[in-house]
Design a protein around this nucleic acid. Structure first.
Lengths: 131, 131
DNA sequence: ATTATTGTATTAGTTAAGTAGTACAATAAT
DNA sequence: ATTATTGTACTACTTAACTAATACAATAAT
């Protein structure tokens, strides 16, 4: 299958599953209107408890990415990609607000912060190029 | 006294105490070379267990902000302000790296991110002005 | 020397999050 | 109708973080 998790990653397994399923939808492995693998199949594949997968599926349904039917399975909604897109912008605003709060508390001004982002962005670019 | 905590703040009490003590040092309420209040006094003042204050004091000592002596008390070190200053820069880099990782995962490019920070910074400014 | 005051160590209780075990309920397939 | 397959609900176990209760050890004060 196409899902991978790392139990020692620090991030909860169910969150990793959420990200994996979303990613699979975005790159077309799981298609709109079609079902994703059953909870049990994914649980077996990932060697985790079905409830852990169910938690991820439940959350995805809450977000509107999939719609589940007992006995049938969980289907990718038409609006899945829109939802995920919008969700991303919301998340971006959220992390940005949180970030601004942090650096303000540390005494940084707007321009200093912009510089900080630029500098560290470049640093990460370089590190990646060296791989 | 000069310390305040909010037990329902979400943030652990001992962390709030750490921030409060640091702040008190920065604005001169607790002076370099002089002792901060005893663990028991602070515990009584804040209505928390002495161990909770002790945890904060232990952490501050680990950071080099204060130096404790059994039977005497905990004294603000000469280098306390330098340490806190440097600590702030490190923290800023850390939160920035984490922030960049987040927005990159959300598909944001460098310039988009800069714009995001600018826009939200201004937004927060406006909100504060309206108070 | 004795006593009070300081920080320290050890242990335990509390809460929340995450994960798993097991049984249940609804739908599909035959 | 019966059976298999699907998601669901409920319960319990584990772990980690936080806080507190209590007793201990070192220093200061007298």
């Amino acid at each position: 299958m196409y899902l991978q998790i790392d139990p020692r990653n620090g991030n909860p397994i169910y969150m990793q599953i959420i990200e994996q399923i979303k990613h699979a939808i975005q790159i077309g492995i799981f298609e709109v209107g079609k079902p994703i693998p059953t909870i049990r199949d994914m649980a077996i594949e990932l060697c985790v408890n079905p409830n852990t997968v169910a938690k991820a599926v439940r959350e995805l349904e809450r977000e509107g990415v999939i719609k589940t039917f007992v006995g049938k399975g969980a289907f990718v909604t038409d609006k899945a990609k829109n939802v995920m897109e919008q969700d991303n912008t919301e998340k971006a605003v959220k992390v940005t607000e949180s970030y601004i709060k942090d650096v303000k508390w540390l005494g940084y001004k707007k321009e200093q912060t912009i510089e900080l982002v630029k500098k560290n962005w470049n640093k990460l670019e370089k590190e990646n190029n060296h791989e």
